Simulated scan of single mutants.
Amino acid sequence: MDELIVITSHCGDPEMVVADLARKLSGRALAGGLIFCSHRFAKQPFARSLQNIVGQVPLVGCTSAGELSDRGYDEDSVVFIGFPADSFRMAIHCFDDLDRFDPAVGGQAIRVLASQMTRESLIVEGFVNQAALFLVDGLSHREELLAMTVQDALGKTLLVGGSSGDGMRFRETAVMVGGRFLHDAAVVVMLASRRPLRAFSAHHYLPGGDKMVVTAADPKERVVYEINARPAAEEYRRVAGGGPGPLDSAFFAAHPPMVRAGGNHYVRAIQSVNGDGSLTFYCAIDVGVVLTVGEPVDRLSQLEAMFDEIETEVGEIDHVIGFDCVLNRIDAESRQMSGAVSQLYSRRGVVGFNTYGEQFRAAHINQTLSGLAIGR
């Protein structure tokens, strides 16, 4: 069987990127493709040209907060992942106007999509392994509802994905579907294959001992005004043991708030500190939520062990489609280990993008490496 087709372009001119992809994809039969790109490109002409390259097969993607290419952490680039037609089938469903998303209607649409995939790919063609990828507008604030709805409709098929980014600007994120970049949208990608597929999610922190309780918040806007009945930013800094330096993305990445749910701890990452001393989060947050500050573990050793475990299950890995939180990248840079992480990702075949949040199963989470490992 053909390997996944992974192409990275650093051409600054979108027309040159398209020409480069067209040349490298010439004669290749695809079931579909993914595209992750820098937010700097002129989006709509670029999307139309990309779709023209692959013709009628599904092509989806999103803007990023950084890319994961064959050289690890990358930027100002375009990463294309093509699924060979001889070993994959791909179908998609797009949700737009997320402010009016109806869970009942959305769930039914995914059940129909999953049923068609099972009937056509599994029963007729013998593509016995399935997974679902998910891309969503990273500024939509609808990830939690969508992930729960889609995973419930998928049943045993696991969902994994990420929220689109735009560097660290937080102004204009987008999802690409059908030759267009869309705002306030999400897309579900059903994959079926004869190859082993393994969805996973991992973070690199353990919960600390000191507790923080959210005592005033705006859940809709994901803003926390008070922690322990004190101004949120001031109290978070105190509990995290921070000095007088700035509360910025590097500080948030190094001292991630964590919440306990279902017997496990998950990061509830902070996006920004506001002028009134409040904190804006990437994930759902509400009054009464109990947080602790995460402490880092040996990331490189943990990642090596995780990939070794995946290989024992799926055999030799072709590639890993990775959804890596942008705060992981910032923390790696702050700890002067981004080169080592990049080398590990490159050696393990991780390609994808840096996200504003990740989705795994029914949860929207932060500061993880989540992804889909594809065996040969």
Rank of each mutant, 00 (worst) to 15 (best):
F88R: 07
V287T: 12
D218K: 04
A232I: 05
R198Y: 10
L279M: 02
K156L: 07
D318A: 01
N328E: 10
T118G: 09
G322V: 04
P103I: 09
F36W: 10
R23W: 00
I365A: 06
L25W: 03
R119H: 07
E143R: 01
R237H: 14
S334P: 03
V351A: 13
I81N: 10
D210V: 12
C11F: 08
A373E: 04
T215Y: 06
G315W: 00
Y282W: 10
P207C: 08
V293S: 01
D166P: 05
A29T: 04
E304S: 10
E311R: 15
R376G: 00
L327Y: 08
A22E: 08
S249M: 06
G82Q: 15
R230P: 01
I81V: 14
L34Y: 13
I81P: 10
R329W: 11
C62P: 03
A362Y: 13
E3R: 11
L247F: 02
A147E: 02
E172C: 11
A216Q: 13
H141V: 05
Q51H: 14
G32L: 12
G277H: 03
S370Y: 10
V177T: 14
R260I: 00
A250S: 13
C11R: 12
T173Q: 10
R361I: 12
V136M: 03
H183A: 05
L154G: 00
V289S: 12
T173P: 02
H10S: 07
S301A: 15
V124S: 13
I310V: 15
D331N: 11
Y225I: 02
N264W: 04
N274F: 00
A202Y: 03
G322K: 08
P246W: 06
I5N: 12
G349K: 15
A332I: 07
Q56M: 06
T157V: 15
G262V: 08
H255I: 00
E316A: 06
G371F: 07
G288E: 05
V189I: 15
V54K: 03
Q343F: 06
R23A: 01
R169L: 09
A332R: 06
A240Q: 02
T355L: 10
V18S: 06
G126M: 14
T173D: 05
S278M: 14
V60L: 11
G27R: 03
F80K: 06
V188W: 03
R48N: 01
L50M: 12
S26R: 09
A229G: 07
G294C: 08
A153I: 01
L159R: 08
P256L: 06
P244M: 08
